[in-house]
């Protein structure tokens, strides 16, 4: 073939290649902006003091989402409170205690597997185990425990990543002074990992707040402010589902969705900020 023609074909191919890639990447970004923008624009004007502080009336058709916010905080809080110490301890085990071996590979493997289980399965399990088998009923505690299992892998991973960045020399320095392993971990290593652990925690909270399928099957949908761990309640994500599927109130639905998006934005921003600002502080 004519070499000039060949070169032209090559050129056209190049343009098409970069064009398609750029287009798809731009499309992805556009979709993100549209989703966030559309929901914020439509919902933001309906978020006001009344919406945040009043209890829902007529199944959420009127009033605010106060009890739903409290329910969200309650369930998320319980879940994170249970998962955090376990997650941190598990990460400590992997980096500080575990010796290479089949057993460790296996428990690592199952930690990854747990991360891949879909939330509806967690919901089914939570319903069968916590709600029915342990008799906790549809309650904050059933949901909290289910959530704890769901966010555990996130916490383990984030903590482990940051434990790995602590220089070996800190461990040596500490042990050489006669510290026990645990004194070394609590006195030197964990303080170095605060940003990493915090990032994991925030991401865990984000996942917990956005969760709906598992919560629906374990917490129920009561619209009252929960007063005990064994009360049923409703979280914002579940509330949004109910409003959307039953078409109760366009306004309230948009407002709830906007609030959820806002929380996600703040949480991701915070996590990003912490990890980029303090991530390099262990350099030595």
């Amino acid at each position: 073939m004519d070499p000039r023609k060949l070169r032209n074909i090559k050129k056209a191919k190049n343009i098409a290649f970069y064009g398609i890639i750029g287009l798809l990447a731009a499309a992805t970004l556009t979709v993100l902006i549209i989703i966030i923008g559309y929901i914020l624009l439509n919902g933001f004007s309906h978020i006001d003091v009344e919406f945040l502080t009043q209890e829902p009336r007529k199944m959420g058709k009127e009033g605010g989402i106060f009890s739903v916010i409290i329910g969200t905080l309650y369930v998320t809080g319980v879940g994170i409170l249970i998962a955090t110490p376990i997650g941190i301890a598990a990460a400590i085990y992997f980096t500080e205690y575990a010796k290479e071996g089949k057993g460790v590979i296996l428990i690592r493997f199952f930690t990854e597997i747990l991360a891949g289980i879909p939330s509806i399965i967690f919901g089914l399990f939570g319903f069968a185990f916590f709600v029915i088998f342990l008799g906790m009923g549809w309650s904050v505690i059933s949901g909290g425990l289910t959530l704890a299992m769901m966010v555990l892998p996130t916490l383990v991973r984030a903590t482990e990543e940051s434990l790995k960045t602590v220089p070996m020399s800190y461990r040596e320095g500490s042990l050489s002074l006669g510290a026990t392993k645990w004194q070394m971990i609590t006195g030197v290593i964990l303080p170095c990992c605060k940003p990493g652990i915090l990032t994991g925690l925030i991401l865990g909270i984000g996942r917990a707040i956005g969760e709906s399928a598992a919560i629906m099957l374990t917490v129920g949908g009561s619209l009252r402010v929960p007063t005990s761990l064994f009360d049923s309640t409703r979280t914002m994500a579940v509330h949004l589902y109910t409003l959307a599927s039953e078409g109760l109130s366009q306004e309230k639905t948009y407002a709830t969705a906007a609030l959820l998006i806002l929380i996600v934005l703040v949480i991701n921003g915070a996590a990003n900020l912490i990890s980029s600002k303090l991530g390099g502080s262990n350099g030595n």
Binding site: S169, Y170, E172, G173, L177, V188, N284
Partner: peptide, 12 residues
């Protein structure tokens, strides 16, 4: 006690 090759003060 031990003193190491590279100074290793804790980040405190």
């Amino acid at each position: 006690g031990m003193v190491f090759q590279k100074p290793n003060p804790f980040p405190k």
